[in-house]
Simulated scan of single mutants.
Amino acid sequence: MERLHCIGCGIAIQTEDKEAAGFTPKAALDKGLETGNLYCQRCFRLRHYNDITDVQLSDDDFLNLLHSVGDSQALVVNVVDIFDFNGSVIPGLARFVAGNDILLVGNKKDILPKSVKDSKISQWLTERAHEEGLRPVDVVLTSAKNKQAIKDLIDKIEQYRKGRDVYVVGVTNVGKSTLINAIIQEITGDKDLITTSRFPGTTLDKIEIPLDDGSYIFDTPGIIHRHQMAHYLTAKNLNYVSPKKEIKPKTYQLNSGQTLFLAGLARFDYLAGDKQGFTGFFDNNLPLHRTKLAGADEFYAKHKGDLLAPPSQAELADFPPLVRHEFTVSDKTDVVFSGLGWIRVSQPARLAAWAPEGVGVMLRRAII
């Protein structure tokens, strides 16, 4: 008997084990076969109730999928989050793709302030990719959510695939399946075939999208990146680390010896330098609190999960301790908190940036 697959996430359908991936009640299976819209219970609940159910896929499963990419002659479309490049890089991807061409897609360009030039972002993404050992044939900036530059992306895929299959890869939460949906809709007019969600880990197996010449676009599961800020927050607070609207920068005048708390998720200490304005680029609803550096540790211990939230009280038990990173900057620099946003420093300064253990903090040339 031919195996049936969910058209949302690609997993094999089964009706026996409610706790296992691909479970679908028998009545829903019959109805799905009747209508041609066969979804597993997980995708059905996600689509209709925005209710996510965790399904465990081992790291070995993900590695096997990546190896299957390397074993194929294909164009690899690597989707990264412009807002969180460090948290959206697949470790060791250059090794896995085994010489296949890579088209780098920077998603969520609509989140950046309009004053940021596309050329600057493309150059910055290329430089970061080179640091990771990747040599993309091209860079395309898109917004899957707003369907920006989807036609341009389709043209680039057609230009570089040269009759080969296409594998779309990315870590969880970069908007990969939303992007695939936008491509499908652009090509065929069909809407929302693939289940999409803010929640990490939505696509469970390769989804095959046939092309006219007999090749396929394969949508693969999001690789779980353990250092994404999103993994430490509940669904309610994911918005703070996955902004949905254009960021409105906020400037704070700080003297040395002052601290800026980014809710309870991160911290910025101004250690030495002249009074200056520091501009934060974060989700518009993320609460920022200015206080004195002296006593900042005690302030955090007393108010985290309350005044300094997120994380909420419910999230504190699993939230990692903040780790300190000290920097000295001499010209316009962005201090980037991976997956959260960044603070632009305009003048020479000595500072410390704190982020959850395992979440990256880095410096880059100011992009604005």
Rank of each mutant, 00 (worst) to 15 (best):
A263K: 01
Q276R: 09
G305A: 07
K244M: 10
H303S: 11
H289I: 15
A294L: 12
L260W: 06
L262Q: 08
A309R: 12
G277L: 04
L260M: 15
A263D: 05
L308A: 09
Q253I: 11
G264Q: 04
T279P: 09
T279G: 12
K248C: 06
T291V: 13
A309S: 15
T279F: 08
S242D: 06
L307H: 08
P249G: 12
G277P: 05
Q253C: 02
N255Q: 14
T259L: 00
F268I: 07
L265R: 00
K292D: 14
K245W: 01
N284W: 00
P310Q: 08
D274Y: 05
F268W: 09
F281Q: 05
F282D: 00
P310A: 07
Y252V: 14
K275R: 15
A266V: 07
K292M: 13
L271C: 09
D297C: 00
K275F: 02
H289P: 00
G264L: 02
F278E: 08
L293A: 10
H289R: 11
A263M: 03
A301K: 15
K275A: 12
A301V: 02
P243D: 09
A263I: 01
P249W: 06
L307Y: 07
L262S: 07
E246I: 01
P243K: 08
A301H: 14
K302V: 07
G257R: 13
N255C: 06
A266M: 04
T291C: 08
L262G: 05
K244Y: 03
P249C: 11
K292C: 02
S256G: 04
G295H: 10
K248T: 13
Q276D: 08
P243W: 01
N255V: 01
L286H: 02
T279S: 15
P287E: 10
P310L: 08
G273E: 08
L286K: 01
N255G: 01
K275H: 00
L262I: 15
N285V: 04
R290F: 00
L254C: 11
A296V: 04
L265Y: 06
D269G: 09
F281D: 02
L288K: 12
P287F: 05
T279Y: 11
N255Y: 11
K302R: 14
L260N: 09
F278Q: 04
D306P: 03
L308I: 10
N284R: 05
Y240K: 06
A309Q: 14
F278R: 06
K248G: 00
